[in-house]
Design a protein around this nucleic acid. Sequence first.
DNA 1: AAATGTACTGAACACTGTTCAGTAATTCCA
DNA 2: TGGAATTACTGAACAGTGTTCAGTACATTT
Lengths: 203, 203
Amino acid sequence: MGISERKEREREEMKTMITTAAMKMFLEDGYAKTSIRNIADAIEYSPGTIYLYYKDKDELLFEVQAQAYLKLLAAFKQNVTSTDLLERLEQLGKTYVSFGLANPELYDLMFIIRAPTNVDKEVHGDNGHDTLTYTISLIEECIQAGLLIFKDVNQAALQIWSMAHGLVSLNLRCRLKVMIPEEASVPEILHKAIEEYLLSIRA
Amino acid sequence: MGISERKEREREEMKTMITTAAMKMFLEDGYAKTSIRNIADAIEYSPGTIYLYYKDKDELLFEVQAQAYLKLLAAFKQNVTSTDLLERLEQLGKTYVSFGLANPELYDLMFIIRAPTNVDKEVHGDNGHDTLTYTISLIEECIQAGLLIFKDVNQAALQIWSMAHGLVSLNLRCRLKVMIPEEASVPEILHKAIEEYLLSIRA
DNA sequence: AAATGTACTGAACACTGTTCAGTAATTCCA
DNA sequence: TGGAATTACTGAACAGTGTTCAGTACATTT
C-alpha cells in the first residue's frame, strides 16, 4: 500500500512547487505585488488549487519567511569565519547589512512587513528560531568573555539587532537619503556605522 | 471679485476636510485598511470627489505624513526641556520611542510604509524636513561641545536614528518578543536601551 | 436668459484574496 | 473488471480595492 506514501510525496512536491514559485516572485516583485493568480499562472494551475495547499496568502508568506531565515543563517555561517569573538560579531553585523541590501524584497518580507497573524505557531515552527539562536549565542559568548559593555544578553541582542535593522530598513525605505551624501556608497557607509557601533560597545 | 478667493478658500477647506478624515482613519485602522471609499463615506462625498483634490492615495499619505512629522516635532519641543545637551538628547530619544509606541499606525505610515513615489518633491515640500533639522541640530551641538564620540554629524545622526527606529519598528512588528520577557514593560525596556546606548556613545 | 464653467456623482474597469459548486480523474471494494 | 467513493482540480462568483470618466446639476459670466 505505497499509494498513500506516494500521494503524500506528491502533495509535498506540489507544496514546494508553490513556495518555490512564490519565493521567486516575492524576490522579484515583492510580496504585495505578487498575487495568488500570478503564482497560479506561473505554476500553470488555477488560483483555487493554491488554497488546497495553503490556507492563506499569509501562510505562504510564513513558509517563504522560513526559507529566507535559513538563507540568512547560511550567509552567517559562510561569512562568520574568524576565531576572534569580536571579529565574528563584526562579520555577523556586516553580513546582516549586506544581506538586507542585496535582497531588499526578501528583507522586507522577513522584518518589515506585518508578520502573518493567522498562522498557528503550534502547527508551524517558530520562524527564524535557529537564526536568532545563532546570533544570540555569539553575543552571549562575547559577554561571557567580558568583551562587551553589556551585562544582560537580551538587552545586548535587542540593541545590536535594533541598530542593524534600523540601518537597513531606514535605507530600504529611503528615509535616510538626507544623511547620506549623494556620491557615497551606501553599503560602505552602513558597514562603517556597524564598525563604529561595535567599537562603542566594547568593554 | 472675491469669488475666486472664496472658491480657493472652499477648496482648501475641502482639502483639509479630506485629510482630517484620512488622518483620523489612518490613525485608527492604519493606512492599508483605510479605503478611498471609506474616507468618501466619512465625509459624505462620492469616491470620485477625492480625486478632484488629491491625485492618488499616495498623495493623501504624503499630506498626512507632513502633519505627522509636525506632531512629532511638537512632541520634541514639548519634552526636550533640559539645559544640559546630553540630557536633551536623551529626552529626544525617549520622546521618539514613546511617540512610536503611543501612535503605532502613525509611526507606521511615517517610517515603515513604502514612501510615496508618485509625489513631486518640487510641488510639495520635503516631508519632515523641520523635524529632521531639529534633531540634527541637537546632535551637532553635542558634537561641537565634544560630548559624543562622533566626529561626523551625518554618521552620528545615522546611527542614533537607526537605533531608535530599530527599537520601535522591531517592536511594532512583534519581531523582538523573543528578547523581551513576557512580564516586562516594553516602553521601560526600550527607554533603558536608549539610555544605555547614549551612555555608550559619550565621549 | 442663454452660454459657459465648475463641482460632483456613480457606474465602470481592472485588479485583489478567497470560496465553493461542479467536473474529471483516480483509487477502492465487491 | 465494473461501479461506488474518494480525491484533485477548476473557474466562476463574491466582496473588496484604487482609479477613471461620461454625464449631470448647479454657479458664474456674458
